[in-house]
Nucleic acid binder design. Structure first.
Lengths: 326, 326
DNA sequence: CTGAAAGCGCTAACAG
DNA sequence: CTGTTAGCGCTTTCAG
């Protein structure tokens, strides 16, 4: 692969001059510019960004750590992150941490080694103390990682309230909330709190079931079947849309009609759900806005590592009404 | 951020020695090793991989160019790629090319600038001549990019045949195939060919509708509605599962029962579909195997850039029978 | 078993 | 308007 020196030789100028035309810096005669450009084209030259970064420049690389891009929610989020960052001249290193804390730690080290300019993390793993000493700008999605790492999230509490109100308005009396394992600091715990707050105020009966986020759909379906068969529930709030989809499946199998016998509301409202399951009532997280916010904050920190940021940024959610709560 | 020199000083040894313990190379006394390790821990040291790569080492970075990770098919594929590459010590730079050729070209340049060790590309954009002169190991998923770039794909032709046979067996007489825009060299064109071959042999009537892959679900739904209302179709083959989902939606709206009035078969068979839409009969692409194959070939090329590879690697598809073709 | 020195490809003073 | 020089952080001969 051609180097700056190669093209300097070919154009009959010094390396400095080449560097100057690449960076469009200082004043060059049109003639030399032309010669250099010609040589660059001739050799299909691409400046080595490694060397450039070594000299103290930024890498224009951002690490993105998320549970996994197979999930449509995070798929859409990554797509949005990639899209917005690309427009600002950044590339992303994608890290699917899954539920593997060790992998997440490895990635953290690698990202440091690669000298990324910053990190966006929304992993589900907890207790990764390494976040405290990464020494790089980091923004978190919806999780507490460490002091001084700002958290951007949608209004989980309000989302829970909205879900409860919607279910009540549609006439359910005996509710069930199906949520992921509620580890401390988890956002779903706020969805739960908001939900309970409304129901408490209105003396509505309800029950809480925890199903681990990372367990397989088969397992989840089994637990849902149990819930549906054993109880006379007439309203369910799932803290994510995919689980709501499983509820619809199981209900159908059991001959329970939605919304006649059972009202259902989900959470997330991805494009995917809106397009392919418009019947599902859900609470939409404003993914694009969340991403814009995160990138905005991250770039600020990259620009000025000491800039003071809030510890929390909360964006509003929106109710999307489908046929499952009519 | 701490450098190798910093820790050399702290440990009271030379840079060379530190380098040796990092790379576990040559013979070191336990004592120096211990001192160096201590210093590394103390300063939370991470070797600068930029500097390392500049010295001629590989970057351990792979560029992944795909249409977009918001689509569950590519989401799953990226997840698989990331997973398998991580285990081999590589990280990925994710590039969502969408249907933007210019963006894809930009990314190609950036990947060169970043000196990635190789590229996996499965973009939908055609005519990117740049692929010819990237001068990096590249493997393609399901598209022709340039001579000498191996293509890994599932058996699209056989998939089309399977779809046709399945629809025939379930009793449809008047078929419709809904496919993406069939640009030359596109894989869907082989699905179509296989499908037609079987129908031709059996004198079954059918019709072909093209709906651009990148058009919105709303537009797609409209066209599907048209197809369903105007004709007396009783069997549909969609060359991707998401479109099949839309067909199910529209059929329901129009009071057409599946599978009673209409048989339906999709294509892709992602985990997502298998988990959340098990009712849909579909042709499953072996994503994990495809990825294994691609990575295998890519690493071979990275290891030996001149190694000869086939131009095509075709992996078998599998019929997954759901309730839509009973 | 350990160190000194050169150089990867590029940028940034400093000269002219 | 252009070139010389030094050095980013690391690896790698070549010497001890």
């Amino acid at each position: 692969m051609a180097t700056l020196d190669d093209i300097a030789k070919m154009a009959g100028v010094s390396a400095t001059t080449v560097s100057r035309v690449i960076n469009n810096y200082g004043s060059l005669s049109e003639k030399t510019k032309a010669k250099v450009f010609a040589a660059m084209r001739e050799l299909n030259y691409q400046p080595n960004s490694l060397a450039r970064s070594l000299k103290g420049k930024k890498t224009q690389l951002i690490g993105v750590i998320l549970p996994g891009v197979g999930n449509p929610f995070f798929g859409q989020m990554v797509q949005e992150i990639e899209d917005q960052l690309f427009k600002k001249g950044y590339r992303i290193i994608l890290c699917n941490a899954g539920d593997d804390s060790e992998k997440e730690r490895d990635y953290l080290r690698m990202l440091m080694a690669n000298r990324v300019d910053g990190i966006i993390s929304g992993s589900h793993n907890l207790g990764i103390e390494e976040y405290q000493k990464v020494g790089l700008p980091i923004i978190s999605f919806d999780r507490y990682l460490s002091n001084n790492i700002p958290i951007v999230s949608s209004d989980n509490f309000q989302g829970g309230r909205l879900a409860a109100q919607t279910l009540m308005m549609s006439g359910s009396k005996m509710m069930e909330i199906i949520t992921g394992a509620n580890r401390p600091n988890s956002p779903t715990s706020n969805r739960l709190k908001g939900f309970k707050e409304i129901l408490g105020k209105n003396d509505v009966e309800f029950n809480t079931s925890e199903i681990d986020f990372s367990s397989s759909p088969i397992i989840k379906s089994l637990k849902i079947k149990e819930i549906l068969s054993n109880k006379k529930v007439d309203g369910i709030f799932c803290t994510d849309d995919l689980t709501a989809l499983l509820v619809m499946q199981q209900a159908k199998d059991l001959g329970i009609s939605i919304p006649e016998d059972l009202k259902l509301i989900g959470y997330d409202g991805t494009n995917f759900i809106q397009n392919y399951h418009p019947e599902l009532t859900t609470i939409m997280q404003p993914i694009a806005d969340i991403v814009t916010m995160m990138i905005d904050l991250l770039l600020k920190r990259i620009d000025d590592p000491d800039c003071k940021l809030e510890s929390n940024y909360t964006l509003p959610v929106k109710l999307i009404t489908g046929a499952t709560t009519i």
